[in-house]
């Protein structure tokens, strides 16, 4: 019943034209999502690569990232709005803060998880640190890095709704209005749009993933052979009695 009404709202031509129509809100929603994920990637990818590559600062990274995760986005948006004033800036910053941890985690884990033997061989062949990073670690980190981006995008798509609280016309608007005036069809309609958008964006990023993950890495993941960097393979480096057991397995 409620879904029928929601579809009614979704298909109502009145909602498809004008400055506050569904297409405009989708566009604004997308702008915020891409802006936030891009901004977060610009911060988190280099940081994750650096920490993963050097192995320095891993603890600080995990701690800082957990602290960011603990921030309630709605609270942050409201706070920034009160402090900074601009709604666009406060929403963007909040969404970036939300998107940084998953991207950081994916990038860092991606680099860390590259098989120790592979990294050791890269050094032993005479690669410099930068060559090792770009020619070996980054290509092999791609599956987890893209996974981090997808996680970030999913969270940002859902959370960009809160922008409506400070007057930004995202897809949060119908949710907010719907709740405020108890217009459930509008509320559910808005929720459906957000869910659809999330699915579509995730699919797009999945395709991007297929393009940027090297074929050999994808094959290794699929055949389920000790994927570069399983916990077991990492332990190999430490020459304890575990070494011989793990290595012959």
């Amino acid at each position: 019943m409620i879904f029928a009404d929601a579809f009614g709202w979704l298909l109502d031509p009145a909602n498809w034209s004008g400055g506050k129509s569904i297409p405009v809100r989708i566009g604004i929603h997308l702008l915020y999502c891409f802006g936030a994920v891009l901004g977060a990637a610009l911060i988190a990818v280099p940081l994750g690569l650096f920490v993963g590559h050097t192995g320095r600062g891993g603890l600080v990274l995990v701690g800082g990232s957990n602290a960011l995760r603990a921030l309630p986005t709605l609270g942050l948006v409201t706070f920034l709005y009160l402090v900074v004033g601009g709604s666009t800036v406060s929403v963007l910053i909040s969404l970036v803060v939300l998107a940084v941890p998953p991207i950081l985690a994916g990038t860092y884990a991606g680099v860390q998880d590259v098989d120790r033997g592979v990294v050791d061989a890269a050094r032993g062949m005479g690669m410099t640190g930068a060559q090792r990073l770009w020619q070996v670690e980054v290509p092999n980190a791609m599956p987890l890095l893209v996974g981090g981006l997808r996680n970030a995008m999913l969270q940002v798509v859902a959370t960009a709704s809160v922008a409506a609280f400070v007057g930004v016309e995202t897809l949060g608007r119908p949710l907010l209005d719907g709740i405020r005036v108890l217009d459930y069809p509008q509320f559910v309609g808005g929720a459906i749009l957000i869910a659809l958008l999330a699915v579509v964006l995730d699919a797009v990023l999945a395709v991007v993933g297929r393009l940027v993950v090297p074929a050999g890495v994808r094959l290794s993941a699929r055949t389920g052979k000790a994927r570069p960097g399983s916990a077991a393979s990492r332990r190999r480096e430490v020459p304890t009695p575990v070494e011989s057991g793990g290595s012959t397995a």
Partner: peptide, 11 residues
């Protein structure tokens, strides 16, 4: 330089 698990580059 040759190591135990070969350490070939998967990609």
């Amino acid at each position: 330089y040759v190591i135990q698990q070969a350490g070939l580059f998967p990609h």
